[in-house]
Nucleic acid binder design. Structure first.
Lengths: 197, 197, 197, 197
DNA sequence: AATGAATGAGGCTTCATTCAT
DNA sequence: TATGAATGAAGCCTCATTCAT
């Protein structure tokens, strides 16, 4: 079987998993449900994933890869820390808000156990936070942002705001766009980073 | 059996549940584990709770009741919105940070499914957010805080920061106190709420 | 539930297991088959046994316990090594031949894997061999049996003969009694133990 | 493909099966394990064998063929029943003891189910027992061995001794040679066959 | 109110076998 | 002949819940 097709099947399984897990939750979704939606046999799942949990991990990895790839592209031409952070905020909301099913997973299902959350957090979110902290440190060095708080603390605070907006959006039944909150978040964050008098 | 004793047994079950769920996760904890630690028979659990999930709900309710009770007391004498918000921030971190097992549950386990999170969020967190929004609205009315952003949006942003700090603390293995971050959070939030130039 | 009844249920499961395993083999028997025949739910099996394999081990243990108990009784009054060994031979064939289903298990199913056979062999058969070797050593000391071969070697040889007769009987479809071979085996063994010229 | 090569691949599969089954047991060995070790694809196995069980049968057949071939050669020049039986004993121990992996299979894995053992027993072991019985009958006719026991019974007894020694050797972790027991077995058997007084 | 033995539905996973290439 | 991805039946086991005592 050509590699192309192999990749397709794995993708199909992940796509099916996103939909099923988003509507039934991780524990409420059976491997059989995912297989059925993906159009493969139950056993086929195990040709691509070591077990049910690995599907969830792969889901997150795939999402983070796309996130990172997109982020790298979008931030490529921006040197100004302010512009970079604004872009990060918009991008975060745009990407998370772009796929409600996936958002349900990242905002809710991926946090279903301490062990799991810890694993993900260290692996990928840690890098994301450091990237944000780096941008903030640049802005501090340039004198545009307050220096009385640590860059990593500020990065976590910013992430907390973004994450809460995302979770709130996921829980809201209204048909709003998450990205629409970008302007408010940006204004909040920029206000928070202003140097103190 | 006198009510007092009945209450005691229910409390014992909840106490046991906190410990077990904190170390094994909600899905990794069996009703039998909770019963054993509580010193009751498996069947006894069902005299006090409709099912396993209701234990989790009750856990959250009990925590929120204590939270609310403590909050009401502490905020009783404070009229100034700034002082009230500062008190809320400290209290949030102090209460969540006061019991690591409980914190694991509120920051991780309670978010194990969309349905569940939604339910809790509407029931109790919504009220908490409105309380914060109320304080912020007062400050805005008094002219000490920016008015270009909605009180509820700002409340969510503040909650996001607090929540992220709590989750980060839960995931960190280091033996720090969550309340120690109160000062930084306060400075961040106060900076963010300053009126725009 | 009274202990009596508890014991009864465990016995019922073991009895059911003997029948099922004897006709379908260990790997051909499902836990559900045993449960059905025992008249209990599948899950009940796990209240009494840690897993499927433990049923097999328990089966063997129970058989060996009865074997040992009966042997101890029967040999109690016999001091003469010759009489003792003759009794052992008859008893072995009588007990193994007394329950064809159980014999199928001891002669065939219990030997289904190296790991398993090794485990059983060390645990219980070893003791049996030593008991036989002890009797033989007595006879050697008394001068009635050959001394040019080690007691343990002779015990294994005698066991080999008994075991082969048992296996042969199990495999034979004819409706013979295993104990009927006692006389021939005794004559063979006694001939083999005669002192060399 | 020339026959030679075809034969080679089949041999490779059997060789691989011996190693895998010896270390993991018949049920613990998957067709995929055998294929990998043999350096062929899973599906290729089915070009040479009807199924997994046929591999085990073929393994036994190949071993018996070699056994028989060697036996025929070695016994060719021997007319004396005593010499023939002594040669059989040594050969049995030598051949079984010559390949520990194969011995594990013949002594343990081949006996994994009544149905299977029965099948093998009738097909090949029966012939072996009859050959031994024939030698014994000759000895009886020549007057060197006891006549009060049937040749087939005696053949089974002798086989039982050899089989027990082989199984004992397989289970013993010590690095002994099985053939080293040939002398003791011979002495035991010859003693057993001596005419009764 | 309390017990805890019993239930039985249902899930994850394995693996012998097939078949399109 | 050879491949190996795909299949899907089937099994062991868990565990929330019940109910006779």
């Amino acid at each position: 079987m050509p590699r192309q097709a192999t990749g397709r099947k794995k993708e199909a399984i992940l796509d099916a998993a996103v939909v099923e897990i988003a509507s039934h939750g991780y524990h409420g979704t059976t491997v059989a449900m995912i297989a059925r939606r993906a159009g493969v046999a139950d056993g086929t799942i195990y040709l691509y994933f070591a077990g049910k949990e690995e599907i969830l991990v792969s889901l997150f990895d795939r999402a983070m890869d796309r996130f990172t790839e997109r982020g790298t592209d979008e931030l490529a031409g921006l040197d100004d820390p302010v512009a970079r952070l604004m872009r990060i905020i918009d991008l975060h909301l745009e990407l998370v808000g772009g796929d409600r099913d996936l958002a349900i997973i990242t905002q809710v299902e991926l946090r279903h156990s301490l062990h799991f959350l810890d694993q993900l957090s260290r692996a990928r979110v840690g890098g994301y936070l450091q990237a944000i902290a780096g941008v903030i440190a640049e802005g501090q060095a340039a004198g545009v942002w307050r220096r009385d708080l640590e860059p990593m603390f500020l990065a976590k605070a910013v992430f907390g705001v973004l994450d809460e907006m995302a979770t709130d959006w996921v829980l809201s039944r209204r048909n709003t766009r998450l990205a629409a909150r970008g302007d408010a978040v940006t204004r909040f964050v920029m206000g928070a980073l202003r140097p103190t008098a």
